[in-house]
Design a protein around this nucleic acid. Structure first.
Lengths: 215, 215
DNA sequence: TGGGTACTAGACAGTTCAGTACAGTATAGA
DNA sequence: TCTATACTGTACTGAACTGTCTAGTACCCA
């Protein structure tokens, strides 16, 4: 019988603690050096664990990389509520602007940017990771946002012929300028909070004009 | 005296021919395998040249990579004429739509996508390459387009408070949906020409509505 | 206290690769 | 024809890295 040892001091078995430590270390090392640039010795050292233990928990480097990425990708929760634009205080402009600011800030997190760059760079070697990223990130966000947009349109007596496209247009207007810059210009984020707010506000405003929303 | 040997059969010296062959081979190999995945032996073999010759022409792998990328980046010519939207046949809608289609098709070229992914993936190791790419690509396109937009706005009796931002919004609306998908989902371009045209047309139309252009 | 398991530390084999060395061949100009 | 130079082909060095192996230690449960 293996010792599941349901808890030691913090409610996780020793194996779970090691596993988590390795994953955290691997995330750090992969994010900093890329897939090929990272070494398993480095991961083990960072996790303060022997190399043998790393291989006990993860079959090989590829498996470890896949687990790191899918874990981080799944942990990100877009979570756009359907009633986002139709409930709460303020005009629809206000609500949309506040959503845009919040969402942009989420996407421009340093770690999220690193993840995105890593996934893009390894899209050749690990195509299925790019696909998960897209499905759980941009694609899902657009779909959830589309629901909220249709609701808001109905409330205003408008109808959107293609709510998903509208949602993608909104996300494009808000995100794509700073995001593309960040992809190409490395991590030393040259964005002040004020600059990000401006992108969010201007993007949201342009969207409202394009899709005929007025309060 | 080194033999410059101004021409042999095609007007280029032997050295120039070798150099060009190596650069072309390196581009192919780097694009296919990434920076770390590419080997100098592979480059030499592809160029049908001895490894020694590669090192005669380029100090090391980094230098070769830099030359390949800057060469390809500089060769791309956005070239957006200032009178783009104000001269020629058709309404401004037509001209903008046709520009959008043309530009999108240019950016979605297989090689351009590969270059972009490569530069993004190596942005950590070669930050100055990302910077060049951005300056000569997106940034320059937005600035040139801004001039054309301001002219078109004036012609219509409008005024744009921030023409560069308007240009970036236009480019975002047209490009960012398929471009982001392509970045994440690998090269097996899942885009028909019709699909690209639709993104271009819908993006251009949304832009016209947002910025109050009407013919 | 005893037995089984996870873990540590380090050595190790096997491979890959950047960059160099070298001996010999082709080429172009005088 | 002679000479300087570029080029070829191959072997080599040194370093890094993945994944395995081994011998011994720490931990957990009965």
């Amino acid at each position: 019988m293996p010792p599941p040892s349901t808890d030691s001091s913090d409610g996780r078995s020793r194996a779970e603690q090691k596993s988590a430590a390795i994953l955290a270390a691997a995330q750090q090392v992969f994010f900093a050096n890329g897939y090929v640039g990272a070494s398993m010795d480095q991961v083990a050292a960072t996790a303060r664990v022997s190399k043998q233990t790393v291989y006990k928990h993860f079959r090989d480097k590829e498996a470890l990389f896949r687990e790191v990425i899918t874990k981080v990708v799944s942990a990100r929760d877009a979570g756009i509520p359907a009633g986002l634009l139709t409930t709460g205080d303020g005009s629809i402009e206000d609500r949309l602007r506040s959503f845009a600011r919040h969402f942009l800030q989420g996407v421009m997190q340093r770690d999220v940017l690193k993840l995105r760059r890593l996934v893009i760079g390894e899209a050749g070697r690990f195509p299925e990771l790019g696909q998960s990223f897209h499905e759980l990130g941009p694609s899902r966000a657009a779909e959830e946002l589309a629901v909220a947009l249709r609701e808001a349109a109905t409330q205003q007596g408008l109808s959107l012929s293609d709510p998903v496209l509208a949602a993608e247009h909104l996300l494009s207007l808000v995100l794509s300028i700073p995001l593309n810059q960040a992809m190409l210009l490395g991590d030393e984020i040259p964005f002040t909070e004020a600059a990000l707010h401006r992108y969010a506000d201007e993007g949201a405003a342009a969207f409202l004009r394009a899709y005929g929303f007025t309060s």
